[in-house]
Each structure stands twice: as C-alpha cells, then as structure tokens.
Design a protein around this nucleic acid. Structure first.
Length: 820
RNA sequence: GCCGGUGUGGCGGAAUGGCAGACGCAGUCGACUCAAAAUCGACCGCCCAAAAGGCGUGGGGGUUCAAGUCCCUCCACCGGCACCA
C-alpha cells in the first residue's frame, strides 16, 4: 500500500478519536506533564522546509513523551499580525483579515498532512479580538504598575509618502519599493520598562538549559557594565544662559583614569549640544550632517569626527578647564551620551585626541606596556599614585563625595512598542485635550480593529481613516477624545502566546493561574536561532511581569531551548526570490510524510544547517520504510497471527539472544536520545541498525515466530515517534490494540543489556594487538591471564618487560604497557 | 576587534577519555531478470602487489596506560555583536 492513501486514513482516525488531546490541569491527576512548544509560525501561506524540520523534531518528542506515559501539551497557533498582510491589502486589495484567514487554513491543512500531533483545540491566532484583547489588558496592567511611558525616539520617516517604515523596508536610506529617501524623525511613542528587569534577565540565564551561543547573545544584548557616574561642572561663562544644565554627567568604566582626562565628548544629540548649536551655525551644520546619516552609514564611517564648542568643564579633582566637543562616536542612547576623553588609555579617545591635538597624559602603568588600554597601577595621579585601578575607583568615589557614585549601565533599551500600522493590536488609550493620554477602562476591551479601512500605502496609519474608530471619550471627563491610532509591536503577541494555549477560551483572564502552574515551565522549546535575542528576551521579560502581577509562579518560561539549523538549497536559504524553494507538499506527494519526517530527523544534528541539495537521502528513508513493511508482512503471513510467548533465555539460540540484546540496547539508546540528549539523527540510525539485525535473524531460528513478534512489535513502537503513520498501520497488522501512538513505550530490561560472553580488546602500548572472548563474569585476574596468553599478542610481548596491566571498569578492554 | 561555535572518508554524519569512520547517501562488483527498475549479497580512509605492518579526526605541542574527545598554541571557516565610554 502506498503512503499517500494510508497516511491520510490514519490522520482521519487520529482526528476522529481526538488522539492528540491534552488534559486541563483538573484532569491531570498527578501524572507527569510535558509541555512541548515550537515557535508559532507567521501565516505566510505555505509551510516551508524549516517548519517541517522544526515540527517533525518537536513531534517526535511529543509522541515519545505520550508513549512514556506523560500528559503532553503540544499546541500550535498563528503569529497572525504583521506587515505582509498589510502589503497584500495594498497590492491585491484583499483585506488583511481575509488574507490571513485563508493562509491559516492552507497551512493548517499542510501541517495535518505531516502527521504532526498538535492539539488543535488549543489553537490560537493573534489577530482575533479573542487574543489581542489580552494584549490590551496586559498593557493596562503594565500601565497601572507604571511600566509604560511615552517618549520621543527616531523612526524611519519617508517624507514622500508621509509614512513610517519598518527597518526591513529601508535599504540604503531609501524605501525599498519606491526608492524615496527615508530620514530619521523623532516621534512620540509608547515604551515598556524592560530595563527594570535587566539584572534579573541577565542572572536567570544561569538557571536555564539553553545553548551557550544564545545565552552569550542575550548577555551581550543586555550588555551590563559596571563603573561610575562622575559629574563635571560647566564653567558658567562658557555657555549661553538658556540651558538649565550646570553639570555634565558621564558614565565611565575607568574612573581610575580620571587624571588622564584631557577633553569631554558629547553626542551630537546631547541636549547641551542642541542648545549650543542654536547660537553656533558651524556646530549646527556639523550636528545636522551627522543626524542626516542613516544608521548604516554611521556604522560604515569609522573615522572619528568632532566639532569644538565654546563650552568648557572643570576637572572635578584638579579644577583645570577642559574643552567640550561634539563627536560622532558618542551614542546618545548609551550611558549619558557623554564621554570623558582619556586619550592615553582609551583607543577611540586616543584616535580623537591625535586628530584634534589634545594632550595625551599617561596615568596608568599597565602590566603590558604595549597594551595601554588595560587596568594597572596609577601614576601622575597625585595622592592616588601607586594604587591599583580597582582601589583607585573606590578611593576616588570617596574623594569626590557627591560628585561621583559607582553605577551600572546596560545596553538593553526600553522596548519601543508603537507601530504606525493597521494590522496589529490597537493600543488601548485615548488622547484627551484636557487630560492628555489616558488608558481606556478595562470594561471597554477589546478595542477592536475597524473593518472600514482603505489601504493606500501612503500617508499616516490606515487607522486614521476610520472616523468611527477615532471617536472616543475621555475616561476622566467623558469629553470627546481621539483614540490612539498606534498599534503594538507584534513581539507583544509572541511574548505570552504559550500561556494562552493553556487556557485558550478563557473570557475572564488571559489564562488561569491553575493552568499556568500546572503546565509551566515549557519542557522543550524549539525554534530558529534568529529569535535568540528579541523574541526570547521579550518573552522572558513578559513572563517575569506576569509573575509579578501574580498570574504565573515560575521565573523562567522555557526550561530547555533548542535552536534548529536552517534548511538550505545549494548553500542558500530557500527563498522565493532565489527560486530555490523545495515545496514540502510535493515531497509528501512523492514519498509520503513518514519518509520526509525520517529524512529530516536523520539528515543532521538538529542545531546544524542542512542542505537539501546533497540529499537524495530521502530515497534511503523510503527504502527503510519499505523494508520494515515487507518484514512485517512476511512475518504475519508466516505466523498467521499466531503469537507464541517468548521462550526462557536458556532455550534461545545464540543468534536469538544476540537479537534480544540488541533490541534492549537499541531501546535504551533511542530512549536516551529522545529523553535527555535530544539527538534525533542517532534515533534513526539506531532504528536502522536494529532493523538490520532483525532482518539478519536466521530463517530457521528455533524460536523465530516468538522472537520476531517481540522484536517487531517493539520496533514498531520505537519507530512510532519518527514515522507515526506506518507505525500505526503495522501496529494494527501485528495485532496491537488501540493506537500505536498510545501504546506503552518499550522498556530496556537491564538483564538483557548484559551478555553472557564479552569480547575484550587487547591493547599493547596503545595499539590493538588482539581480541579474546570471555564470560562476562570473568574476574580481573582471569581477564589479565587470558590477555597475556592471547596468540596474536604474543609477538608483541616476547622479550619485553611488562610494566603495567590496566583493566578499566567497563572490562571491555585491557591495556598492557611493555618496555624493551 | 570582541563573544560564541565548528573543523572526522567522495558526501551527510557516528563515537559518554577506551577498537575512529556506526548508520545512511553516492560509487564498484555480483545474484535475480530477455532487459531495465525494484530487491538481495559483497566491497568501499590512505601507503604497500598482497599479507604482516605502518599512517590517519585542520597544523604544532602537552597530559594520560589510552586523546576526535582534556590542556596550551597556531590556522581556517561559520554565526552573533560591533565606536557600548
């Protein structure tokens, strides 16, 4: 029978019997739980090989855990808000909701064809009011907690279209579609105070089982550095009276180099520079030039550039006046946007000082004179001379009294939430002429997206075209107010979706605490490495907020994370524009879902990239499945479903005992690989080895029917997570009851893991010189004696002095050390 | 530049300090066949005619009875971040 027919029949049966259903917390009855999660897909319309790989491997774990007896939650949903739907609306006139709906239906059908065991009763789509109302609810909770604020930040502004663009739409400073120039324009936006959790987000990385590279990326993203904030007083006569500032605050990790400061550099966006530029045309021109550069250009342009100002500051210890520059290498959004220039001990300051002829004063003696950027011993620093860098920092903070404090800064920035888009969660606030920005009352949720929208791709957010939507009342004074037209970043949607799966129909809360407590943390999360920072940081942050609101109890949502490698074609990522997309549907059409799954699991370790090009290997997967079917077929014909019970061990032939041993060692390996090592390629190779050994059992083996029955029914269950359709088919054929996917997972019997006889390798001076077979219970002395009399070892022992004989605990090897 | 990782046959890869190359793909030869496909069997790292033996996990060094695996160092490649004060 060909896979195309039986696979869909089995899928129907699974569906009819709700075979993938998972219980609520009340129904769990103290059973071991397992929450298997994959990153929710964007409904682009077609599944691709990356999805296939991700979902196959997740499904293997889910199916394995079910057979092991765990209650398994294995859901899928749709990350359904986002730009492509809006583009489809602009280009093809189809409403984003319609387009998205259709794509979800198409993709769901494809995923069902893969035989992935998702509990579709838990399905969610983030674009439904059912879901996004809880984004709004959470926003209001965070507002109450004071975790939401409004501030200005630059956006990509396309003056020709009058539209804000996403980073991905801007290429080399131009709108990718029209080529219109894009500039940076400050705009008032909503922010979430993620920085409040910076320290915890950093520290808790040590408590989770994640890949090193992802942890490293997150650490770098959070970017903690410890140092001090020091104040430099502005010489009053050197700046215009209009500025309120009397000091400049500077963050430094090297307060010990304070005596080496010869200038101060400020970001071109620093308020002090902005004010100074008002009365200094040359400075203004410099700042404008830097501001007009796109982010990309700024990174490419590596030369340090500065512009002098009339401002001077006083050195806090020596009271010497120091010049203040505006400089292109100072970032406004890190530290305080100001740097104390220490040319002798900072590479960038050094370059800058040389260019502008500023004094370079060495104040640190470093262990390696060629590396002046390191810490060392202070010199030229008056009473601090002779101190180590670390001692000096403490001493200087004390000396400077209120003018310096130890401080910690992070690269992590507060999360800019606002998007000037239609297809997203409306931010639940109104603008009242009297009371400013006000959150709406909880009772008004959901604030629904209006349908009467025209999508032109130009002008402000499409939401501004719906007057019905815009008209609102102020919750404070009930006077007319204008509804907020910004929508939320779609990362909000994906920051807590895994909790909504647990209670998808809840009308009172985003999810109940009981469900969250019962199912969290997620035991295994699989997804692409591209989400190593943004999504995985935001989701961790949201989870901590939810914990602090009292909705969840654990600190970290994802206990174990695996990032799967990409599926390539001809060395490139598959993409429509390259025309190298391999459609999973066509592969299933030709080979069946089981073959594709098997191949995906076998091709390479999960975290590595695989290239579809080199892999006629799927033929191998097909061959394997055919061999299994044929073997079971033959066995059933021969035995007519008579299944005598297994004879006691002494009555078995040597070959039969060997097969039984293999059956149990394979069971052990496959169990380990699926349970702890998450190494899927060796699951498949173990299955192949086992199949080879089962096939090799002699036709005239005395207990063949019973041994074969035992071997095959075990094999079918071991194969079931990877190739569930064929397993189901063969399970029925061999007389199994119920679904194979619900059958009990085979257990490795320790008695069968041992063998009566053992082959022992004899090494002499590290080289293999012979092998002997001994009873497994032979003593160490017997092993040594036998090894020394091994014929092939004799030539290497003659005329030599034996110095040492080592028998390692496994007993599988004996190492003899000899000397001439 | 900094951080993380990888390096094993023609290819994908296996190997918890204990027989390197499991398993598969490709290939070669054979069986079956009128023939082909499918299937089954054998071979399949390098040197030597072969056996015996030697060499061999990016290069060099070290620890160990024993190193693909641990340590040092260099090289190459991949990924991430990148003027982070």
């Amino acid at each position: 029978m060909n896979p195309q027919t039986y696979e869909s029949e089995i899928q129907k049966k699974w569906q009819q019997h709700k075979a993938f259903a998972s219980p609520t917390s009340a129904e769990m009855q103290g059973k071991q739980k397992f929450y298997m999660l994959v990153m929710l897909p964007y409904p682009s319309g077609r599944i691709h090989m990356g999805h296939v790989r991700n979902y196959t491997l997740g499904d293997m774990v889910a199916r394995f855990q079910r057979m092991k007896g765990a209650v398994v939650c294995h859901p899928l949903g749709w990350d359904a808000f986002g730009l492509p739907a809006e583009n489809a609306a602009i280009q093809h006139g189809v409403h984003p909701a319609v387009w998205t709906r259709q794509n979800i239906n198409d993709m769901k059908a494809q995923i069902i064809k893969m035989g992935i065991s998702y509990d579709w009763d838990r399905e969610i789509a983030t674009c439904f009011p059912d879901y996004y109302r809880w984004n709004q609810w959470l926003f209001l909770k965070m507002w109450e907690r004071g975790d939401v604020f409004r501030a200005e930040r630059n956006v990509n502004w396309c003056p020709a279209l009058g539209t804000v663009l996403a980073n991905e739409q801007v290429i080399e400073g131009k709108y990718e579609r029209t080529g219109d120039p894009v500039i940076q324009k400050p705009m008032e936006q909503y922010f979430l105070k993620i920085t409040k959790y910076a320290e915890e987000l950093l520290n808790d990385l040590d408590t989770i089982d994640w890949p090193d590279n992802v942890k490293a990326m997150q650490k770098h993203w959070i970017g903690k550095s410890e140092g001090a904030i020091v104040e430099f007083a502005i010489l009053p006569t050197t700046q215009s009276a209009s500025t309120p500032l009397t000091t400049i605050k500077v963050f430094t990790t090297r307060l010990d180099t304070l005596y080496g400061v010869s200038f101060m550099a400020l970001s071109t966006e620093h308020p002090l520079i902005t004010t100074a530029a008002e009365s200094d045309p040359s400075l203004r021109e410099f700042c404008n030039r830097i501001a007009s550069m796109s982010r990309e250009d700024r990174l490419i342009c590596e030369t340090k550039e500065g512009h002098p100002t009339s401002i001077q500051v006083l050195h806090p210890l020596t009271n010497q006046p120091l010049p203040v520059f505006a400089a292109n290498y100072i970032l406004m959004d890190y530290g305080s946007g100001a740097v104390m220039g220490v040319p002798a001990h900072d590479e960038r300051d050094n370059e800058f000082a040389k260019k502008y002829n500023l004094p370079i004063v060495q104040v640190i003696q470093t262990p390696n004179p060629d590396d002046p950027w390191e810490k060392g011993i202070l010199i030229n620093s008056q009473q601090f001379n002779g101190m180590t860098s670390d001692q000096a920092v403490t001493a200087m903070v004390n000396q400077l009294k209120g003018k310096a404090q130890k401080a910690t800064t992070y690269k992590l920035k507060d999360w800019g939430l606002s998007r000037q888009r239609y297809w997203g969660t409306p931010i639940p606030t109104v603008h009242c002429p009297q009371h400013g920005v006000q959150p709406v009352a909880e009772s008004q949720l959901p604030i629904q997206l209006p349908e009467d929208i025209t999508f032109s791709g130009i002008g402000p957010s499409p939401l501004t075209t719906s007057t019905a939507f815009l008209n609102a009342t102020c919750p404070q004074c009930q006077a007319p107010a204008q509804r907020e037209t910004d929508t939320m970043d779609t990362f909000v949607d994906s920051s807590w979706y895994f909790l909504r799966y647990l209670d998808p129909k809840n009308q009172q809360l985003p999810f109940s605490k009981a469900e969250a407590t019962a199912w969290l943390p997620i035991d295994l999360y699989i997804g692409g490495i591209e989400h190593a920072t943004a999504h995985l940081v935001y989701a961790r942050y949201f989870h901590k907020v939810l914990r602090d609101i009292g909705l969840t109890t654990c600190n970290e949502p994802f206990k174990k994370l695996i990032c799967q490698g990409m599926v390539l074609k001809d060395g490139y990522k598959m993409s429509k524009s390259k025309g190298n997309v391999v459609d999973p549907d066509q592969v299933i059409e030709k080979y069946g879902a089981d073959a594709l799954r098997l191949f995906m699991a076998f091709a390479a370790p999960i975290e590595k990239e695989i290239d579809w090009t080199g892999f006629e290997g799927i033929e191998g997967a097909t061959r394997f499945l055919k061999r299994v079917s044929r073997l079971v077929e033959e066995h059933c014909q021969q035995t007519q479903n008579q299944t005598p019970s297994l004879p006691p061990k002494p009555q078995m032939s040597t070959e039969e005992k060997k097969l039984m041993h293999k059956l149990h060692t394979a069971t052990k390996h496959i169990t380990d690989d699926l349970e702890t090592r998450y190494q899927f390629n060796t699951v498949i190779s173990s299955l192949m080895e086992l199949l080879n050994d089962i096939t090799a059992l002699p036709k005239n083996s005395p207990n063949r029917p019973s041994i074969m029955h035992q071997a095959l029914t075990t094999f079918i269950r071991l194969m079931s997570p990877a190739a569930p359709h064929l397993a189901e088919q063969l399970w029925e054929q061999t007389g199994g009851t119920g679904f194979c996917m619900h059958a009990q997972w085979p257990q490795a019997d320790p008695a069968w893991l041992e063998t009566d006889q053992q082959e022992i390798v004899i090494q002499i001076n590290g080289k293999v010189r012979g092998r002997i077979t001994l009873p497994s219970n032979a003593t160490e002395q017997e092993r040594k004696t036998a090894a020394l009399s091994c014929p092939t070892a004799q030539p290497h022992l003659a005329d030599k002095t034996i110095q040492k004989i080592i028998v390692p605990p496994s007993g599988k090897l004996i190492s003899i050390v000899v000397k001439n």
